[in-house]
């Protein structure tokens, strides 16, 4: 208990509360208009997706191209729970996330024995399988999609869920489990010699990542009224992968920043249809030339950056929004 109540933790909690309250007030007074609210939600979902993908790709070093598949599972299952079974939203959220985690476990167990290219292809295939299964399932609307989903996701849900995601993944990484995951990334052979069960930790990272991707999907489907299997294809996975690479593989705060930056850039580019994709790609190329390690590299943005004499083991924090 005493360790939880450090000055640093209290500052962060206070800062988060202030951010939450300010945005909530701006929203209810209409200063943040309905349009900017949709982008706020989209950015929040981006944070959840990018941070969870970063755990798999950036920290555990497993290159996956199927993250949108887990998002689809979360989105569809939670929507079915609310629309068809009449469950409360909180249960649907957890249900969607848990089913995605179970799928992550079932798929991760065999595929994570593969490395590099092979794993990338296997996860790519997995994402496609999920999409095609949804496409051919009449119960969830098939190719026509599932509609009539109530809009329940709002700023409060998004804020709480993204803070919980960041906090859980940060705490996992700063535990012995997280260090084991990072050791797998750094050198599998060395880690194995030191007694780390590498498959175990890879699967762990995969399952936790899938869980939060499912959560992101559940939030998504309860904001956009309608979901279609086509919305969760290969390009969606790439979209989140770009966030992770741009933010820095192995930096949670980097992913958070990248999710926000890319959402904002997208809003600016919406009116320039003809040169939109060129500008977007150009921007990424420029950032990658000058910051090949991503915006944050593997560093974290933390309160410790401001207080140099902080003790070393206090380093790192959940970071601001």
């Amino acid at each position: 208990m005493k360790r939880l109540l450090t000055r640093q933790n209290m500052i962060i909690t206070a800062a988060l509360l202030v951010v939450y309250i300010i945005v909530q007030v701006l929203l209810s007074t209409g200063i943040i208009s309905a349009f900017y609210e949709t982008n706020l939600i989209l950015g929040g979902i981006g944070i959840i997706m990018a941070v969870s993908l970063n755990l798999i790709t950036g920290f555990a070093g497993q290159f996956t191209l199927g993250h949108a598949g887990f998002m689809a599972i979360g989105a569809y299952f939670s929507a079915v729970m609310t629309v068809k079974w009449g469950m409360p939203f909180i249960l649907s959220l957890l249900g969607g996330a848990c089913l995605a985690a179970v799928m992550g476990f079932l798929i991760g167990l065999p595929t994570l024995r593969l490395k590099g290219d092979y794993l990338a292809i296997a996860t790519l295939g997995m994402g496609e399988v999920i999409r095609v299964v949804l496409l051919n399932t009449k119960y969830v609307g098939g190719a026509a999609g599932l509609f009539g989903i109530p809009r329940i996701t709002n700023w409060t849900w998004i804020f709480v869920c993204s803070v919980v995601t960041v906090l859980c993944i940060r705490n996992l990484l700063w535990s012995s489990y997280g260090r084991a995951c990072i050791s797998v990334r750094e050198d599998e052979v060395a880690a194995e010699i030191m007694g780390v069960d590498i498959t175990h930790y890879k699967v762990l990272a995969f399952v936790v990542g899938a869980f939060f991707a499912g959560l992101g999907g559940a939030l998504y489907s309860h904001y956009y009224y309608f979901i279609q299997p086509g919305g969760f294809g290969f390009m969606k996975s790439i979209e989140y992968l770009v966030m992770v690479v741009l933010g820095g593989m192995g930096s949670i705060t980097g992913s958070v920043m990248a999710a926000i930056v890319l959402t904002v850039i997208n809003v600016f580019l919406q009116q320039y249809s003809a040169i939109r994709m060129i500008l977007y790609a150009l921007l990424l190329i420029i950032i990658m030339i000058f910051r090949p390690e991503g915006l944050m590299g593997s560093k974290e943005f933390s309160t410790a950056m401001f207080r140099r004499f902080e003790r070393r083991d206090d380093r790192g924090s959940a970071g601001g929004q």
């Binding site: 349009f35 998504y220 979901i227 919305g231 809003v267 919406q270 009116q271 320039y272």
Partner: peptide, 14 residues
């Protein structure tokens, strides 16, 4: 005119 890139989320926000 706005471009939604064929993306559901953008079609909604636009």
């Amino acid at each position: 005119k706005y471009d939604n890139k064929g993306d559901d989320a953008e079609a909604l926000s636009l």
